[in-house]
Structure formats: C-alpha cells, structure tokens
C-alpha cells in the first residue's frame, strides 16, 4: 500500500489540496466504491455505444463514411477497453464480471443507448448531439478527476471524442445542406434525439453528491446541461432545424435559452433498463458476446500454452545446467 488516510476528513483535506489517488493507495471504501461505479457506468456506455455503431457499419452510405464509422466504432470499443482496465484494477469486480452483468441486464449505461436509431439521420444525430453531450460531461470529469488512472485514460478519450464531434458536424452539415428529403430526415431524427441528449446530463446534482466532493465531477449536472443547450440551440437553428420544444424561449434578462420543464421519467426508465430499445440492445450485445467467445477462448489457450512452454523451457534449462 502506498498511502493511507486516518479518516474521511483527512482524505478530504488531501483531495482539497489537489491530491491524486493511485490504485495502490489505501483509499477510503466509500471513494473506491463510488468511483468504481462511475467508471463502470462510463465503460458500459462506451461499449454499448460502440456496439450500436457497429450495427450501422453495413448501412453507412459510401466508402468514406463507412471508413469513418469503422474507425469511430474501434475508438468507442477502445474507450470501453481502457475504462474496463482501469475499473478492474480497482479490485471491486473483474472485467468479465462487469461485462457479464451488463449483458445480463443488471448494469446501467447511458440513457441515449436505450433508444433505437431508425434512419441514417439518427446515426448522424447520435454522432453529433450524443457524442457532444458525452464529450461535455467527460471533459468536465477530466478537468479535475482525482483518480489518477481514470484521468490519464480520459485524456485520450476526450481527444478522440473531439474527432467524433467534428466528423459528426460534417455529416450534419451535408444533411442540412442536402436535398429537402435529407433535411427533413435530420429534422425527424432531431425530434427523437434532442431530449435524450439533453437528459444525458441527468437531473440537477444533489448538493451532497460525493463525486463532486471528491472532485471526480468538476461541475454540477445542471450547469453542464445549461451550457449544452446554450451552444446547440443556436447551432441547430443556424442549420435551419427546429428544436422540438414549443416552450423554448430566449430570456433577454439572463441572455439564456430556456427550455420547457424536463420530464425525467424517460431517463429513469432507461436506468432500470426499461427504455424503448433496452431489451433488444442488451440481447444483441449479449448475443455478440457469445458469438465472439471463440476469440477469448483462443487467447486463453494461447496464454496457457505460453506458460506451459515457459515452464518446459525453464525445466530444460535447469536440466542443462545440472548436466
């Protein structure tokens, strides 16, 4: 063990003075379990997002976009990989356990991956609106993030999300400036994805949220959500789209876009894996896990052979020196 703290107050002092926690530290149990849960949720979301994207690769129009989507899928699965590695090193659950619980429908993942992408424009809405929301919330975690290994992988994840966003806006632009049918297609996708993207940030933060106190989150949910709305309302309107909110208004006094009251029921349903597409998504992911079992078996067999060979080598060598 590297470092330990007498009690939560001392630990808080360490955090408040800019301390970064490392895996070997004897961190408080509360910190370990909360941070683990948060990273597990993030990892699950990257994996479920990547798997959804994978489904769209055959349907992605044109070779160039297909290449972009293949690369993006690899990035998302890669993000999951890095995060599961970090989470597993916290010693709460193994990677297999996390993945198996996720595919058995026992775990949580981002609300946006509980909905179905109906047309190509939905995929564009996801690549732009959803990635932008995820990007904003991840960047806010990266800004402080007192858990060292998480901060280090977030640096790379956030950088890659930046590429996704720019690709996303490129694709949005071509639909917006394309034929009236393309424009209309994105308008309809926006109607399906606007609210889930806004809800991704979650309801207003509980002032006692330990993740804020321990500086895993650097910003409250409502602040991030508000900033997102300020950015995307004018941006989408600039492309000629209508935000699906009849009460949306610009408040001159605060110089802010204000939305109608947010209904949090859809978000809560997704957190119980009871969203519109949760069952199909989880079943698909789980089927994929079984179909790819042979890859894991092959890797395990190679690892076994490797250690057997190493043992045989060692035996031969020591026999050699004895002779």
């Amino acid at each position: 063990m590297l470092r330990s703290w007498k009690d939560l107050d001392h630990f808080q002092e360490f955090i408040d003075s800019g301390g970064i926690v490392e895996p070997g530290d004897d961190m408080p149990d509360e910190y370990r379990s909360e941070v683990f849960r948060f990273i597990e949720f993030h990892a699950n979301s990257e994996l479920m997002g990547g798997l959804t994207e994978r489904d769209w690769i055959p349907k992605t129009p044109g070779l160039r976009l297909k290449q972009i989507f293949l690369a993006k899928t690899q990035d998302e699965i890669g993000h999951a990989h890095l995060l599961y590695m970090v989470a597993a090193d916290m010693g709460v659950k193994s990677r297999n356990q996390m993945i198996e619980e996720l595919f058995a429908g026992k775990s949580r993942f981002h609300n946006v991956f509980h909905y179905q992408a109906v047309t190509w424009a939905d995929q564009v809405a996801i690549a732009f609106l959803v990635d932008a929301a995820a990007f904003a919330s991840q960047r806010a975690v990266f800004a402080q993030c007192t858990y060292g290994p998480y901060k280090r992988v977030l640096k790379r994840i956030v950088a890659e999300e930046g590429f996704h966003l720019r690709h996303g806006e490129d694709m949005l632009m071509s639909l917006a400036e394309g034929s009236p049918i393309q424009h209309q297609m994105f308008q309809e996708a926006l109607e399906r994805w606007w609210w889930p993207a806004v809800q991704l940030f979650g309801p207003d933060s509980d002032p006692a949220d330990p993740l804020l106190k321990w500086k895993i989150k650097s910003e409250r949910n409502e602040v991030l959500r508000m900033a997102y709305i300020q950015k995307f309302v004018p941006l989408l309107q600039g492309y000629g789209f209508k935000i699906p909110d009849d009460e949306l208004r610009y408040d001159e006094a605060s110089k802010k876009w204000l939305t109608s009251e947010i209904d949090w029921e859809p978000l809560k349903a997704t957190m119980r894996n009871g969203g519109p597409d949760s069952r199909r998504r989880i079943a698909n992911a789980s089927a994929n896990w079984s179909e790819t079992r042979w890859v894991r078996d092959a890797l395990d067999a190679a690892a076994d052979n490797q250690s057997k060979n190493a043992a045989a080598d060692g035996l031969a060598r020591s026999a050699g020196t004895a002779a």
Binding site: H81, L82, M85, R95, V153, L299, A302, Q306
Partner: peptide, 19 residues
C-alpha cells in the same frame, strides 16, 4: 499510456498498437 491483457508478447504488441 495505460495497460492491457494479452496472452503473449506478440499479441500484446498488436493489441497495444490498436488500442
């Protein structure tokens, strides 16, 4: 940069490049 699991050095190299 991070960590990964692999059965042997060659596979580790490949996975590291792709990850």
């Amino acid at each position: 940069a991070g960590a990964l699991d692999a059965p042997d050095d060659d596979m580790a190299r490949l996975l590291a490049r792709e990850s």
